[in-house]
C-alpha cells in the first residue's frame, strides 16, 4: 500500500494534479467485506476480523481500540468495540456472529497498527462462527471497491 501511495503521488506531482490518497485505498482479494467497512478472513468456521484500509484512512491516526473480552458473543451487524482516532470515534461491527476466541492484545500498546497494517498486524478479533452461511451476505473485493467509490462520491 505504501509503495502504491508513493507511486501515485509521484505520478501526480509529475502531472501537476492533486491526489486524494483516499482514492487509492487497497482492498484484498480473498477477504469478505461488510458495508460498515470491516473485513473478515474465513478459514473453516474461524473468522479473523479487522477494519478496512478505506476505513482507517477516513478515520486517521488511531489512538485507541476498545476490544471485547475473549468469550464474548458477537452478532452480525452489531457493535462489539470501537476505534478512536484523533478525529473521531467509530463503532466496530461484527461482520459475522459467533464467540470471540482471541483478541489482538498488541493493539493495546500499538493502536496505530490499524493504520499501518489494517489487513495483517492490525487485525482486531478472531471469532468462532455460529453460522458460516452468514458470510454469503458480505461483499467480495470488487463489490466492496464499488461500494466505497459510491460512498465517497456522495461527499
Amino acid at each position: 500500500m505504501a509503495s502504491r501511495l508513493l507511486w501515485a503521488s509521484r505520478a501526480a506531482s509529475h502531472l501537476r494534479i492533486s491526489v486524494f490518497h483516499r482514492g487509492f485505498s487497497s482492498v484484498i482479494k480473498d477477504l469478505k467485506y461488510a458495508d460498515s467497512h470491516e473485513w473478515v478472513k474465513v478459514d473453516g468456521n474461524s473468522a479473523t476480523v479487522g477494519i478496512t484500509d478505506h476505513a482507517q484512512d477516513h478515520l486517521g491516526d488511531v489512538v485507541y481500540v476498545e476490544l471485547p473480552d475473549v468469550g464474548t458473543t458477537v452478532k452480525q451487524g452489531a457493535s462489539f468495540g470501537a476505534v478512536e482516532s484523533v478525529k473521531a470515534t467509530s463503532d466496530i461491527n461484527a461482520p459475522v456472529s459467533g464467540k470471540v476466541v482471541e483478541v489482538n492484545e498488541e493493539l493495546n500498546s500499538s493502536p496505530a497498527l490499524v493504520n499501518s497494517s489494517p489487513y495483517t498486524d492490525g487485525w482486531i478479533i478472531k471469532v468462532e462462527m455460529d453460522n458460516t452461511g452468514e458470510v454469503k451476505k458480505l461483499m467480495d473485493a470488487d463489490q466492496y471497491t464499488t461500494f466505497c467509490e459510491e460512498e465517497d462520491s456522495k461527499h
Binding site: 460498515s36 477516513h58 482516532s85 478525529k87 473521531a88 467509530s90
Partner: peptide, 8 residues
C-alpha cells in the same frame, strides 16, 4: 469527523 466515517 464522524459524518465522514463509517457511522454513515
Amino acid at each position: 469527523g464522524q459524518s465522514i466515517t463509517r457511522r454513515l
